[in-house]
Computed example of a mutant assay.
Amino acid sequence: MNRPLESVKVLVVEDEPILGRAISTGLADHGYDCILANSAKEAAALAQSDSFPIILIDLALDDDSGLGVLRCIRESNENASILLLTPLEFRAERVMGIESGADDFVIKPFTMRELLARVEVSLVRSKSRPSSYIEVGPLAIDLTARRAVRDGKQIALTPTEFRILELLMRNQSKVVTRRMLCEFLWNPEWEGVTNVIEVHINRLRAKIEDQTTANLIHTVRGSGYCLRWAAAEVEVA
């Protein structure tokens, strides 16, 4: 069994003390950094305060539904790989778990070797997911937290401004037309005027650009806008 190249944090949500300790010890012996939560409430608090690439959740928790914990954790941990630990008879719950955002499940009783294999596969899958963090020069956005920063300082954006910035950053160095922006913001059948986009762009520029450095958002006459840093070439999106 391969060890992770660097210590990976794993949140284990298990209210059976003996099983919880056994899982945590087994994973720790293979290089994982395990945190054990003995209740749904503790698990939710830990997931809110820290980042865990791998989360194991027992569906049969005493103080709350494992599905409830799963949904709560998934909302704040979009990129985590979540594995469910389920009794054999929990067939319907396993299906609901996958539909609620779980990535895989392990049926009890299981061996440590099987659990390790599932964890390793989930870790590989999670690393291949698109990042929720985008950077262009001094500007960065966190798509999960809906947060934008420039040079480490948070920028207060309206939901519309954030979505415009998201589309421009996803297409950095490419031209994004006014029509594309309207359809992204509202709907594919948008038939309204596009002048409203200019108002939002001007407000966005005022918030993200620094007068002492080069502009980030560039107007492409007759087409739309392009977000680029320094001397990057412009491509057509």
Rank of each mutant, 00 (worst) to 15 (best):
M1N: 03
N2H: 11
R3N: 03
L5E: 14
L5W: 00
L11M: 05
V13H: 01
V13R: 04
I18R: 15
G20C: 11
A22F: 05
A22V: 08
A22H: 08
G26L: 01
I35S: 13
I35E: 09
I35V: 11
A37F: 13
A37Q: 07
N38R: 11
N38I: 09
E42I: 06
A43G: 10
A44E: 15
L46T: 08
D50K: 15
D50R: 15
S51T: 11
S51R: 15
P53A: 05
I55H: 07
I57G: 05
D58P: 03
L61W: 02
S65R: 07
L67R: 02
G68I: 01
L70H: 08
C72K: 12
C72T: 14
R74W: 02
N77C: 09
S81R: 00
L83I: 11
L85M: 10
P87Q: 06
E89Y: 15
R91V: 07
R91D: 08
A92N: 12
R94P: 00
V95R: 10
V95A: 14
I98L: 15
D104K: 00
I107K: 03
T111E: 03
T111Q: 10
R113E: 06
E114Y: 12
L115R: 01
L115N: 05
L115A: 07
R118K: 13
V119S: 06
V119A: 10
S122N: 15
V124C: 03
S128W: 15
R129E: 10
P130D: 04
V136Q: 02
G137M: 05
L139C: 00
A140W: 11
A145S: 09
R147M: 06
A148V: 05
A148L: 12
R150T: 04
D151T: 01
D151G: 03
D151R: 10
A156S: 14
L157G: 00
P159G: 02
E161T: 06
E161V: 03
E161S: 04
F162Y: 11
R163G: 03
I164H: 06
I164Y: 15
E166M: 14
M169G: 08
S173K: 02
K174F: 10
K174V: 13
M180N: 13
L181E: 09
E183F: 05
F184E: 13
W186I: 11
W186F: 14
N187I: 00
P188M: 12
W190G: 00
E191L: 11
G192D: 07
G192Q: 10
T194P: 15
V196G: 14
V199S: 12
H200R: 02
H200W: 07
R205C: 15
A206V: 01
K207F: 02
I208P: 08
D210H: 08
H218L: 06
R221P: 03
C226F: 03
R228C: 07
V234R: 01
V236C: 04
